[in-house]
């Protein structure tokens, strides 16, 4: 991974959350906010349908960055994101990243997570330290 340099792209991560993913993530995380798991509730409060958990999307950004270090959970030292859009089940989420800084012991990656042309997480900055 140390051959990454500023301006390089990190490998793209593509994942399509299935219809019941928000239910599994609710159970796994403890976040049972009905806007994520109850379509009727979500539409009653003006949303198109139930929406993905922002922190699940952040976990995909974390995974794309950890993958740069072979998936080593110790490598990801910091991740900062801004939630800027609603994500939906059954639509492909694409995480892309560009190296901003690359040193011997620290790589900083600027990451975006999008569905279609809709950027859901942007200005995400990850700091990775190779093992």
């Amino acid at each position: 991974m140390t051959d990454l340099k500023a301006g390089d792209s990190i490998p793209e991560l593509r994942t399509t959350p299935d219809k019941y993913l928000p239910h599994r993530y609710a159970g796994a995380s403890g976040d049972f906010n009905p806007i994520h798991i109850d379509k009727e509730f979500a539409t009653a409060v003006g949303l198109p349908t139930n929406i993905l958990h922002g922190l699940w999307m952040m976990a995909q950004v974390a995974r794309a960055n950890a993958a740069v270090a072979g998936g080593d959970p110790r490598a990801l030292k910091r991740l900062s994101v801004q939630f800027r859009g609603m994500g939906f089940p059954e639509q492909e989420l694409v995480v892309t990243g560009t190296v901003k800084e690359a040193g011997d012991d620290r790589i900083v990656v600027d990451t975006v997570a999008a569905q279609g042309g809709n950027q859901l997480i942007r200005n995400a900055e990850a700091e990775i330290r190779p093992g």
């Binding site: 599994r24 993530y25 796994a28 699940w56 959970p73």
Partner: peptide
């Protein structure tokens, strides 16, 4: 089992999880 459940839900498939 909580770690395994969470790792499964976010797609963290590294065997160390």
């Amino acid at each position: 089992e909580k770690i395994r459940e969470f790792a499964g839900a976010v797609g963290a498939d590294n065997p160390v999880h």
